[in-house]
Design a protein around this nucleic acid. Structure first.
Lengths: 235, 235
DNA sequence: CGCGGCTTTGATGTTCATCAAGTAAAGTGG
DNA sequence: CCACTTTACTTGATGAACATCAAAGCCGCG
């Protein structure tokens, strides 16, 4: 870990970065060094906005640590949350390569570190390195695919089913534990599953009454995962 | 236009193909020739299935003429339609490059011609030709982006708003006319916007009563586009 | 010409949004 | 540190939006 005395930005050496195993596994030492020198690692506190829809796209962004939400603000002032994703899933909007500006906003749900690589450099690497390009396509596709798939999952469920699905998603995909701190408010869950926050809360209360979860503020414990899975499937 | 006497498959020369202006503009004459020789042009009658979810992905598929729907079958036997797209919008599922099998099915809503290029060849071109790779990323991103965006548009509208949106979509994006033949059944519209077919039909009837559209079977004429736009925006 | 699938409409009930009012929690300024 | 404000959460009551069920008409196809 190297700390630049001028900017005090933390920089680990890219050679040992975990991300290298993903998109950047195909780069040789020279290219890795170039990436390493030009990239910027930015920290965002919980709640901070990483970029807004309409901002000019300059960087290819990769989430190193933390948790973020991708969302769109509607004309009426509320948000549609598109996805909530954790590190090592590529995070820049998919429109990176065919538009100038972000279509969606991105903000930190937990303290997060984002690795920013200049988009010109990525473009250059694609042009020069076929393996890198192939790999990148794969990562980009997976990201989009996950977003599309999440939408389909919500679409076909009713209120209770969507909430069961969300709880299982956090438990299985994000925290790998049956007890966890919800990174989002009830309102944000509502914005994710396209239901009213009052009904989200009501459903939490019902799940609690039925002994399916214990909920104390944002601390959630899944006590009857079987029931929850049934609700998620049938709902 | 060349017709192969053995297979009776029509083949236009790729050199003059309109698609060349899109993804394949960066290929030199040699590569174009290779693509041209190995590709297959397949015709599908209205209603035919082009591929099913679970089928092994062998080709990169591009819609040349016609109209197709991308959809997922649920366990309960009904369909979720993901998108309906017209020619020159790339059509293969986005999982082309990171999965072995299709996640979604694709079928022809109108008689359609699909150009199929072996996936190995595409992979090879990506490896060898950086500009092609960059271009392809752009096309793939746009396709995914359109699907995601469509989902968001439906999500934030109520029944009437969704139907107004669908009608405007067909009118503006697909047929470029205020009179057109709906390529889908009422049931399929229901599967696209995640509402019941009975209520889709009811809404059509209401629009007709209110003088917003004339509907005779699948023939639709938008008679009051302003009202329809208001409903689409506010609904 | 008869069958099955799509369309249409009405009646009924469920699901969900909205409104309202109250409580708890968390930030804010003196 | 406390009073104050704001924001998140909670619950109930009400009505609107939508699904479901049922019956009848239509159309295309074998």
């Amino acid at each position: 870990m190297i700390i630049d005395p001028n900017t005090s930005k933390k920089k680990c050496t890219c050679l040992s970065c975990e991300l290298r195993n993903l998109t950047f596994s195909t780069l040789d030492e020279d290219d890795i060094r170039t990436v390493c020198e030009t990239r910027e690692e930015r920290s965002f506190a919980k709640g901070e906005i990483i970029h807004r829809e309409g901002d000019v796209i300059r960087d290819f962004k990769y989430l190193k640590t933390g948790l973020v939400k991708l969302y769109k603000s509607t004309d009426e002032g509320d948000e549609q949350i598109i996805t909530i994703t954790r590190p090592f899933e590529f995070v820049s909007n998919t429109n990176l390569f065919h538009e100038e500006k972000y279509r969606y906003s991105l903000s930190a749900l937990e303290d997060s570190v984002v690795c920013c690589i200049r988009i010109d450099l990525i473009r250059d690497l694609i042009l020069r390195n076929g393996k890198f390009a192939l790999n990148l396509i794969s990562v980009l596709s997976r990201t989009s695919e996950n977003i599309i798939s999440l939408g389909l999952e919500f679409r076909r469920r009713n209120l209770a089913g969507r909430i069961a699905f969300v709880l299982l998603y956090f438990s299985n995909e994000i925290y790998h534990s049956r007890i966890f701190e919800l990174p989002v408010s009830r309102k944000e869950i509502a914005d994710l599953i396209s239901m009213s926050s009052a009904n989200v809360i009501r459903t939490f209360s019902e799940f609690r009454r039925d002994g399916i979860i214990k909920a104390n503020g944002r601390t959630i414990e899944i006590t009857d995962i079987n029931k929850l899975e049934v609700i998620s499937r049938r709902g």
